[in-house]
Design a protein around this nucleic acid. Structure first.
Lengths: 199, 199
DNA sequence: ATGAATCGCTACAGTGACTGCATCGAATGA
DNA sequence: TCATTCGATGCAGTCACTGTAGCGATTCAT
């Protein structure tokens, strides 16, 4: 399945080295005490190369989060014929929660992000921007799935409520020092809360 | 009431000149085609002075939005003894919607922001960050108002759902070219939608 | 009214994120 | 084997943003 050529494998290795270097440096010294040049140095590439892999300094901490959105979009696309709107939204949201647990919560990456974002406005901002982009995509997909029940604004409101509730509760849970499982439970409770409002 | 000294009045005039220069330049040429130096030039102050009034290039477009949050916080503080949680949240949210209409929607400022933010990630990000800060404050206030019914995470979920739904629907409405009144109606509908889920 | 303290503004020098461009050399494909 | 592709590099440049020192106009105390 993974038919990657040598060139592509090298590229991924560089990317991974950058991510690991960044996470390590950020953990040790905090976000704004680390320059992109230092990250590149630690990964043994040139500073210019960093920006071939990531658009901004913040992005290295948000690598691979797009995958989550794709999962949710798939969940919407693969709905059963008669499946109810709330059920589809819950299924899509739960996909994202499960993936978040797998990739970011259990490894402590989510906690690191939350900690750094709390003290770094630029990082916080970039993180939220990802959410909004994701929201817009989800809202569009949801509206296409239920064109007779939803217009664009209502779809945006539903998705906005869902993502807003889940992410705010996750952030609050992380900030009070909860462990991965507690955070996930908080997210699921928020999801259920919003799901009720749709029915 | 307005006992402002000469010095303070001059300061406000400078601030206002910066805001107006920025809005005009952004309208004419788009966000990233305008430098802070040019804004300062147009307002006839030094570039350094710009940063005495605004923390970032984006902030000049978000001036005075904190007032809205304060209104909502007041609304929570001034609740009646027996007032229900959903009613308080709706009242607080409506305060923000009304103020948004008064200050930003009717003047077209909100539309400008939405247009610029659509093409400028940094601006979009900063805007969202404001929302999150506001959310956190509101959630804390709400939890203090109903300490027996809400814990921190649930309060965050409620406020997150409300702010998420209202702002997402407003943005979508703005993006499809709706006028001020339509945008406000979209926000109110989203608010009502979320309010139902609490009861 | 006068001297002192405050404070908004300015100039200057610097840091660091990010970009465009020309180039090199290793991988790839014919 | 030769040509093409493409990830990585160096370099020069732009621009957001900051620290610092100083100027001059308001404000305040006497």
């Amino acid at each position: 399945m993974e038919k990657l050529g040598l060139r592509e494998r090298k590229k991924q290795r560089t990317r991974q080295a950058l991510i690991e270097a960044a996470v390590r440096l950020f953990q040790d010294r905090g976000y704004d005490q680390v320059t992109v040049a230092e990250i590149a140095d630690a990964a043994e590439v040139s500073p210019r190369t960093y920006f071939l892999h990531f658009q901004t300094k913040e992005d290295v901490l948000l690598a691979d989060t797009d995958v989550r959105v794709d999962l949710a979009l798939e969940a919407i696309a693969e709905r059963d014929a008669g499946e109810r709107l709330p059920d589809v939204l819950v299924r899509a949201t739960d996909q994202m929660i499960v993936n978040a647990w797998d990739r970011d919560l259990s490894s402590g990456l989510a906690a690191l992000r939350a900690r750094l974002a709390a003290s770094e406005p630029a990082l916080q901002a970039r993180l939220l921007q990802r959410y909004l982009t994701a929201q817009a995509e989800l809202a569009r997909a949801l509206q296409r799935a239920y064109p007779d029940r939803l217009d664009a604004v209502l779809a945006a409101a539903l998705v906005g409520a869902m993502v807003g509730a889940v992410s705010a509760s996750a952030l609050t849970s992380l900030q009070r020092g909860d462990g991965p499982d507690e955070v996930r439970n908080a997210m699921r409770q928020a999801m259920a809360l919003v799901a009720r409002s749709i029915a």
